[in-house]
Design a protein around this nucleic acid. Structure first.
Ligand SMILES: [Mn+2]
Ligand SMILES: [Mn+2]
Ligand SMILES: [Zn+2]
Ligand SMILES: [Zn+2]
Lengths: 142, 142
DNA sequence: TCAACAGTTTAGAATGATTATAATATAAAT
DNA sequence: ATTTATATTATAATCATTCTAAACTGTTGA
């Protein structure tokens, strides 16, 4: 549970003014025990349902992208029409449950280190991400 | 190099009528030595530049999705605004070169088998995909 | 303290990739 | 050849995201 003043500092330190809207979004995103995986739509709905003050959709887009640019969020793309943001910014992998459309973080107990034997010559590895799609047995294949 | 009659059979066997447009698209996609990674836009441009007959964009979308549904193409999503199709339908991983926007297939010499130690209870693994983003050393971080 | 400035929010418009529509054309079946 | 089911096409519709520009707010320093 972070205090409001911590969000203020965090924002100031990244050159973002601590506005009412950004602080509210910080609260929703970062005042949690566990990782939060969300779509823009999830976030907009969460805010409009749980608070009186409404934040315009443009601001939600702007803020999420600003937070991503500053490294406070990661983006995880599941398919061409499903993109999630992730409050867990450490290197980690995901299960994606196709039944529930939920992303689940993996730790090293679940997926071992990916063994990259040969990288492309002259290139640097920027990220390594594993996505394991799962679904219940009785589900349609493909 | 596949013959036209092979495409005709392939389409018929999947319940797709072998139309002029579908055969042309088969030719462009599958008459190659190496894997082809493409966006819808790449394919549309390829067809309009290399052939006289024009195929409507709607048909290109329809056909690519039909081929994907039949399992002749895989879709690889790189980011919320970049989705590729892949003529290599075997299980494999990718490097994504952020400098050139090119996908590169990995084989087992490059990325070892991903070690999934614990799957989600009651769920079946549908796919395991690794994406390694690379860029030249001198490139901006993040 | 407060004016001045830069940065932010907002409603609404614009964009653009994808999908839907429905008329026409083509392939397959009879 | 006729009929029927499928496919193609131009065009319109959709809808998530981005843009615009006016109003608003946080910050700074005189
Ligand atoms: Mn698609
Ligand atoms: Mn985005
Ligand atoms: Zn995560
Ligand atoms: Zn591939």
């Amino acid at each position: 549970m972070l205090k409001n003043s911590e969000f203020v500092s965090k924002l100031r330190n990244s050159g973002l003014r601590p506005t009412k809207q950004r602080l509210k979004i910080c609260e929703v995103l970062f005042n949690r025990d566990k990782t939060f995986h969300f779509t823009i739509n999830d976030l907009a709905k969460n805010i409009s349902e749980n608070f009186n003050e409404k934040i315009s959709l443009a601001t939600i887009y702007n803020t999420v992208h600003a937070f991503k640019d500053k490294g406070y969020l990661k983006e995880i793309t599941i398919s061409s029409d499903k993109s999630y943001f992730d409050t867990n910014i450490t290197k980690h992998h995901h299960f994606y449950d196709e039944d529930t459309n939920l992303l689940i973080d993996c730790n090293d107990n679940e997926i071992g280190k990916v063994d990259i034997k040969n990288n492309i010559t002259g290139k640097k590895i920027r990220s390594v991400e594993v996505l394991v799609r799962v679904a219940s047995d009785t589900q349609n294949q493909n």
